[in-house]
Design a protein around this nucleic acid. Structure first.
Lengths: 182, 182
DNA sequence: TTAGTCATGTAATTGGTTACATGATTCG
DNA sequence: CGAATCATGTAACCAATTACATGACTAA
């Protein structure tokens, strides 16, 4: 976050909430202690940017911090396995509540479609805002738009997939009734 | 996990590792304490299933546990936001290491393709194993196959998307050179 | 006989979240 | 003048991982 330009903890939080929110969240309880840790480690340095009595510290990357950032981006991501509760529920739907499994899959499809729509709205708003003025803000938007498009496509595929899964589950229920062994 | 049939903690771990691994992981340090908690809460009950001196406890859902499971599956999933480190890195690639951004995106595409291939291999193996014999094992495989297909499709879309993003980033680098303002 | 797998569990640590606490400034 | 927002931080808690510890049984 500090690579693009120096920021305060508060600004980092704002940026996370508006642009990275759907694939990476962060709380104050994580941000402020982490800034202190990074400062102690010499990777970032804080400059006082208080306006009057309202105190504020703006942090910037040190030379060592820049090196660390490049090193971090170079390394392939550690695959901490994703946790998808919706998928988990569908996985168990058959053994817990087989009659409602298809219905549940369709609910999930609706949720994914709604998410795609929501992200599309944000992307459209960013798109229009980015058109008139160029500059550092437009730069940040390029990254946001790229990941937003990713989120939109993934949500749409998920919606389609849950819909297909629901169709399959309905067919299975029917064939199970016909086959009738329990 | 206990809804399909009673299992020991060890069996739960095996099942998670072989079928739910790519969308939901669990460690012994989570499973055993959780089984105790659920037993105390009256949602599951343990039956001794030791073979000789090798002790083993098989847990099954109580009536209350079955209710709780149905209630859990009925509720829409809580959206604990996903964390995608690969996406996060691409998000920052422009500001940290713009020259290598496209290269990084292609590396991610390769990782996603490899993951898709790996999952495809597992799905094929399960498919063949499921063909000859029917029974409780084949039942479990149906759920596994469904979510595996989801994982394969998602990984393939991600690979395609990272590839497209790399193309875009390369175009941007060229136009930035032509535009030449810094 | 020894390596592998079956089987259970705890302790230390990590990486966060939530709620709380404080105070300044700005805008309607 | 009060609500919203700017701005920083801590304490308690939580979910989960990693590493450790133990021991039985089984197959090469």
């Amino acid at each position: 976050m500090l690579a693009a330009r120096p920021r305060s903890g508060y600004e980092i939080k704002q940026l996370v909430d508006t642009s990275a929110r759907f694939f990476w969240a962060a709380s104050y309880g994580q941000i402020y202690p982490e800034l202190k840790k990074l400062e102690t480690a010499g990777l970032i340095a804080g400059d006082d940017s208080s306006r009057g009595a309202r105190q504020s510290t703006t942090f910037r990357l040190t030379a060592e911090g820049k090196r660390a950032a490049r090193e971090w981006i170079r390394k392939p991501p550690e695959v901490l396995e994703t946790r998808d509760e919706g998928l988990l529920k569908l996985f168990f739907a058959g053994s817990i509540d087989p009659k409602r499994a298809a219905e549940i899959a369709r609910e999930r499809a609706a949720i994914s479609r709604a998410k795609a729509e929501q992200l599309r709205g944000i992307a459209d708003a960013l798109d229009e805002a980015g058109q008139p003025s160029e500059g550092p803000a437009a730069q940040a938007d390029a990254g946001s738009l790229t990941v937003l498009r990713y989120g939109i496509e993934m949500s749409e595929l998920a919606a389609q997939w849950f819909e297909d899964a629901a169709d399959d589950l309905e067919k299975q229920t029917i064939s199970a009734r016909v086959g009738a062994r329990g």
